[in-house]
Design a protein around this nucleic acid. Structure first.
Lengths: 348, 348
DNA sequence: CAGATTTTTTGGATCGTTCCATAAACAGAG
DNA sequence: CTCTGTTTATGGAACGATCCAAAAAATCTG
């Protein structure tokens, strides 16, 4: 019942409206919005009051038309349901926020087609930078198109074959090797590798580290013990079921990541077996949950937050003009908990 | 060394360039981009070829200037690190993707100021709709501004006092009540409530259900047993430490959510105690990880994916013109696992 | 084949900003 | 006062799309 009521179909309030209301020109309003020192304090206040009074919303699209870039940065990840990526995102956000950028996250659920859509949408909106964990099946050209457009881009967690992009990854090979060596030291000879696909570089690196440890210990590599699959719970669940039905089942496994290992935990439980007692299990990533699984998961610790920060800093550096690509590999550590059986007694 | 090389400072390719290259007018190019049936197949192919050849990127900002809305929907969540929200996001994305919208996620880390920035940025980019889990301290006016702008908005997981917004929430009161009743049936009398702040409606509902169960059983409510705090791990960790040092410590606790319960698990472990044996613990949400904690967590199951889908459908409905607000409350279930001690013997 | 009809195509005004060149307002100096 | 020099403020032409009214091309009809 108020005299001052906004019609439902209110047409957009523009700078012109503000100008009229404040008794100045649109140019002046523009200046105020850019916090230019060219306008008198008194005028500035008048304009700000009008903005407040009319509930004006800046139209970034119109502004971008004249060349300026938006203050949003894209973050494209392949599996939001993996807590690992949430941790990565947190590090990234910390840095961008401090620098005045707003990160928008999109999930590709490991689907290259959806990834293209997301990337297209992001380019259409003129993002200032991009951090991407490429989905499986991403062709370097997909990403290069963005870079060509002048969008500073860094790959996180997953490198891409071919052209030199900036990237930020954990030391997958070394981590997997150490984890495998640990299982071998515990007396295991038949050790499986679960999860990931051989067309993913990260899987190659991790599986490569695993094989390197095997051969260094004189254990012949059995291809049948490498079970490929998506890096998620179900994959682990299925993989363990599969290998346990083999004529000569493995006694231990290294997983592509913790989430796969969580799936293995379910699979083991479903058969009435327990990790650490009946089967030695190790994961990769050391997500926050790994410490509290039943039993606690032995895994390769990755400093995820730091990795995210590093990626964000790299994008920032590129935004500021330094476009040299940089491949950053962060060190990793094996953290031994109960799932590998190291805490209990074990004899081959 | 190729003749066809793109200069680093390539100015943006526009529809005019495409038009010139294809020998048609810009209007025709526009028609083709909108998949209009008015253009002859032959012409369409010519234009598409030009688009392909020049690597054209649509400028959504320019288009929006003439009234059309973007195809992105915003999803503002308060804690990306809580796996619960990742599950929610997955449900939301499924629906939006099928409808041709691209969801962009932003994290507010429970910070109302950051939330405003995020919302401003989203309005500036003309989002088609919004699903938001309001950060603590959000004033209804913050959200109403968006709605006023004509952005279909639905609140997820957390309602807001005052004006009628559309919302989608689990039955917090009922869930908490059932969980508490279960603890009482197990013989507990001193039951604590951990996490959340009393200025959050969700906390009021859950804590209210807890109090209702208490009073129905004739147990007097002890305010000292309600430990407020952010809904994260640390809160659980601190809370359990705190109550265990009380003169008359509780023997059980209901947590605001699973993540808080995970923190309690750590705190218990740190003191050499175990949930289910020395202390009865129940969470809320039933995130995927709850099944595999040590011990497995008794918790209130929420059908998170379905809730997300519901929220997305509601936004879609509003986009299509039906703006009646709808408050949806989904049913919940207690799922009993080991952390409450129900599986082992227990006598008061 | 002219005229009527239908299918395709097109120029130009417009959306809400930015930014340049220019104008107005104000000060201080002679 | 006028003149010069600084501050401040302003019109108007972009930017890259959409969309209407109207033109052009193609097709039909008797």
């Amino acid at each position: 019942m108020n005299a001052r009521e906004t019609p439902a179909t209110a047409s957009r309030i523009t700078m012109i409206d503000i100008a009229r209301h404040a008794g100045v020109s649109k140019s002046t309003v523009s200046l105020v919005l850019q916090a230019s020192p060219l306008v008198k304090a008194e005028t500035r206040d008048k304009v700000n009051a009008a903005i407040e009074a009319l509930g004006y919303v800046y139209n970034r699209g119109a502004a971008n038309l004249r060349g300026s870039r938006s203050n949003i940065v894209g973050m494209v990840i392949n599996d939001l349901a993996n807590p690992f990526f949430a941790e990565l995102a947190v590090g990234i956000e910390r840095v961008f926020h401090a620098a005045g950028y707003i990160p928008f996250i999109a999930n590709t659920i490991e689907n290259a087609k959806r990834q293209s859509e997301v990337l297209r949408s992001m380019s259409e909106h003129d993002i200032a930078g991009l951090i991407i964990c490429p989905a499986r099946g991403t062709r370097p050209a997909d990403i290069e198109a963005l870079a060509q457009l002048g969008v500073p881009t860094v790959l996180a967690m997953r490198r891409l074959a071919g052209p030199k992009f900036s990237s930020v990854t954990p030391d997958n090979l070394r981590g997997a090797r150490r984890a495998t060596e640990h299982l071998i030291a515990l007396g295991h000879r038949r050790i499986a590798f679960f999860g990931g696909y051989s067309d993913m570089i990260a899987q190659n690196d991790r599986c490569g580290g695993y094989q390197a440890a095997l051969s260094a210990a004189g254990i012949t590599f059995d291809r049948a013990l490498v079970i490929e699959g998506p890096p998620n719970r179900d994959c682990g669940l299925n993989a363990i079921g599969h290998v346990l039905d083999m004529a000569e089942p493995p006694t231990a496994a290294l997983c592509f990541n913790d989430v796969v290992a969580f799936g293995v935990l379910s699979g083991l439980e479903r058969r009435g077996l327990a990790a650490g007692r009946d089967f030695a299990l190790v994961g990769f990533d050391d997500v926050a949950e790994a410490r509290h699984t039943n039993p606690p998961l032995t895994t390769v610790h990755v400093d995820t937050g730091a990795l995210g920060e590093r990626a964000a800093h790299q994008v920032l550096r590129m935004i500021h003009g330094d476009t040299r690509p940089e491949e950053f590999v962060s060190d990793v550590d094996l953290v031994v908990r109960a799932s590998c059986g190291a805490t209990s007694r074990r004899q081959p």
